[in-house]
């Protein structure tokens, strides 16, 4: 019985971990092309989920479409983050954009708290039922968010590896000077990367909202931390790394919760990060070896 429960928590964790993968990808994409951390990313993702819900209600659309609305809103917030925190800020100073994005994180958090009076908002849950496989139960909503997350990742992979814009994104992240010599515009590629990562964030935010059943500004801080942990464990700049690390952190977190309870859970997640930093500081799929 205990063993089944353990497996159950691993399965649930893996399914939910797909949202962490998306958040990790968002951090890692921006780091890949700009070699900067966007601290406001998880906040903008949650804001995208809020804005998606608001748009949905305004337009009177069916609940399923909340993901698409959040994706669009997230893309706008991503671009906005780029303009305000990167385009307007001198990039040569290493700490300037770190400060500007932390400022953006706090600003978004504050705006969300004010607009919702600090109260959680109910979020539409899709496919609330259960699927049973023997003594094994799979939550329908978790399977749904996993499927959507995988589709989003597949779309991203197609964009990055099969299109002209993706070629430019990879070129800029691997060799920015040569990318410019080929006629690629850094500003354009950066803006595009922020927009794409924002769209993924919006999707992740709405998936998390629908899995939890509500949205709250209290999601922002832990999601920021989890996203950064996933990015580091996966290897800064590696998209496949972020995917694997997201699933790993999701599963590990659920196991820790199962074994030690929800109050101690995050201690062990931090410990996992610590273990990686000590024994494999480059992350699962190492840092990009391509820069000289």
């Amino acid at each position: 019985m205990l063993f089944i429960d353990l497996l159950q928590s691993i399965a649930d964790g893996l399914l939910f971990g797909a949202t962490y993968s998306l958040i990790g990808i968002g951090f890692t994409l921006v780091f890949g092309v700009m070699h900067k951390i966007n601290m406001a990313y998880a906040a903008a993702s949650v804001a995208g989920a809020y804005a998606g819900l608001t748009l949905l209600k305004l337009a009177g659309l069916p609940p399923l479409l909340v993901i698409i609305m959040a994706c669009l809103a997230g893309a706008v917030f991503g671009l906005l983050t780029y303009v305000l925190c990167f385009w307007l800020i001198p990039l040569s100073h290493p700490l300037a954009t770190l400060m500007s994005t932390v400022g953006m994180l706090l600003l978004i958090d504050e705006i969300v708290v004010h607009l919702t009076a600090g109260m959680p908002v109910n979020y539409p849950t899709v496919m609330g039922g259960m699927v049973s496989l023997g003594s094994f139960l799979l939550r329908g909503d978790l399977m749904f968010i996993f499927t959507i997350a995988v589709l989003a990742m597949a779309a991203l992979m197609y964009l990055i590896y099969r299109t002209r814009l993706g070629l430019a994104t990879r070129a800029v992240s691997q060799q920015p000077v040569a990318a410019q010599l080929c006629g690629m515009r850094l500003g354009q590629v950066n803006a595009l990367t922020f927009t794409i990562s924002g769209a993924l964030g919006g999707i992740a935010g709405s998936l998390i909202g629908s899995a939890v059943g509500l949205l709250s500004p209290l999601l922002i801080a832990p999601l920021t931390v989890k996203g950064l942990i996933v990015t580091v464990i996966g290897g800064l700049g590696s998209i496949p790394g972020a995917i694997i690390a997201g699933l790993l952190v999701g599963a590990a977190e659920n196991v820790f919760q199962f074994v030690r309870g929800v109050t101690e859970r995050d201690i062990y997640v931090m410990l996992l990060l610590f273990v990686f930093l000590v024994f494999r500081p480059g992350g699962i799929l190492g840092a990009d070896p391509g820069r000289n």
Partner: peptide, 30 residues
């Protein structure tokens, strides 16, 4: 580049994680 001037930079600066073919496609980006 669009006006017909191209530079082969010092240290070559190929895109290391892209295939040879993709490097050539990148050169024709404009």
């Amino acid at each position: 580049v669009s006006r017909g001037l191209a530079l082969v930079p010092e240290n070559r600066l190929v895109f290391p994680q892209m295939s040879v073919k993709e490097n050539l496609e990148a050169g024709a980006y404009r």
